[in-house]
Structures are given as C-alpha cells and as structure tokens.
Write a protein that binds this DNA or RNA. Sequence first.
DNA 1: GCCTTATCCTGTGTGC
DNA 2: TGCACACAGGATAAGG
Length: 281
Amino acid sequence: MPELPEVEVVRRGLAQWVTGREIAAAEVLHPRAIRRHVPGADEFAARLKGRAVLSAERRGKYLWLPLSGDGEALMAHLGMSGQLLVVDPDSPLEKHLRVRLSFEDGGPDLRFVDQRTFGHIMLSPLVAGVPAPISHIAPDPFEAAFDEAVFTSRLRAKRTEVKRALLDQSLISGVGNIYADEALWIARLHWARPTETLTRPKVAELLGAVRTVMGAALEQGGTSFDSLYVNVNGESGYFERSLEAYGRRDLPCSRCGTAIRREAFMNRSSYSCPRCQRRPR
DNA sequence: GCCTTATCCTGTGTGC
DNA sequence: TGCACACAGGATAAGG
C-alpha cells in the first residue's frame, strides 16, 4: 500500500535509472492501466515514442516523469498494488505486467506491474510544473509549498473526523491509512475526534507526528506488508517492524501495554490504543 | 458547497 | 480438498 514514503523511494529509483533516457516504445498490455488516458492505448504509445525523460517528480502519492517536447509528463499513481520496476529487457514478463516501456539505449525496461489494478498511468500536460489532473491535490508536508497555517485553519474549519481529514488529499497529500493510524497514535488522538475540537497546538503536534513517522519510514526504505510494495529493483522496505498501531490488533501498546484495538472505519480498518487514544464522547 | 458512501479489482487467508 | 467469503484500500462519482 504505497503512501508518500514508498512513492518517494520509487521516485528516487526512477531519477537514478530512467532520467535522461529516450523512450523507444510503449506497450499497453491491459487497457485498465491507462483508463484515465482518454485518447487510448495507441495514442498513448505513439506520443511516448522518441520522448526523453527529463526528471522524476512527486506530490503526495503521485509520481510523474516530465518529458522532452511540449510540457507533458507521464504520470503514475500506484494505487494499492502498483509497482514501477526497472528490469532487464530480456527478463520474463511479469504475470501482472500492465505497461512496458523500452528505451533506445537498449538498457533496462520500465515496467508498470499492478495486481489489483487500482493504479494507473497517463500522459498529461504540466500546469505550473504539476500534471493538470492533480491540480486539486494539496502539497504534501515535505514540500516547501506546504503552508502549515493554511492547513491548520482548513482542518479546524472542517466538520468531520480527524482521520478523514488526514486522508483528504485536497487538504494534505501523501497520507494513507497506515501513516494516518501511526500519526494518530503518536499524537494520542482517536480517529473519530471531531476536527473542530482540535486546538492549533494539537494540530501542530499531529502534523509533527505525520512528518516524523513518514520521515522515519522513508529512511528505512518504506513499509511492506505482502511484498506488493517494492522499490524499482523489486526490494521491500523495513518500516513494518517499526509500526506501533497499524496491523497490531491484540498486541500490546508500546507505551502502556494495553492491547491495540481494530475498529471498522470507512469500509476498512483503524488501529489504535484504547487507553492512549480515548474515543470522543 | 460540504460531507459521506459505494465502487472499482484480485490474491490471500480463514472457516465450514 | 474445495468452496464461499472477508479483507486489503486510494480516488472518484454519486448521493444526501
């Protein structure tokens, strides 16, 4: 389940292995992978051919590769199970290979592999350096453009639960279910806490927790649960062993020893400590 | 206009 | 052993 740290690990790999190379051909093996690319697979492939990759960029969970030519980029979202792999062109095709890019230099392919097909890639124009379809996404908390005062005011003006706000990519991007649970555990907040009851200092503490946990995860190469998330070389990160709440149902809280609980939340799960993170009235 | 919910998808694990 | 079903969950369209 790639969130910001995992996507950043992939971005770094792409910057290292793909930047400066010219695309020879693009092959779409599953149309769903480019479902948001309205002109379709043939147009997608034709427009990529002969373009050079200029750099690798990221905002939140979105990645994009600016291309030579006319202000366009190849944009990707990994969804739940998407992988961007840099592999030898002669290596066997992966079972869930969706899109394959080969390069003029005859070096490694860039392959988009995605078991559950929630991810997608597309070509899109850049507007002020950001792909047009994600212009509504807020900066992530590691960007210089992230404005803490604006974030705080907007969060406190909401009428919702704090975890829903953390997952709202138009408020703050890059946070998913795992790091939301971890940040809430650090800040000792229950996920259902109404946003309008949070003081400015408490919001600052929560944001600090978000940055702390995602920064630590990035240092360890990201989190992996079922080998679906890997870097461009197919390797998993090590942050899973550092998780304090997520996925730890019935295991003791490292602060107080109380068993971590799992609660249903938005058709999925939320993990928290019943003692450190009291449910609001 | 804001907020919430249903939907997309497939492999894995569990219970009967 | 085989079957049915729950579960993982980000983004978005649709509904309230």
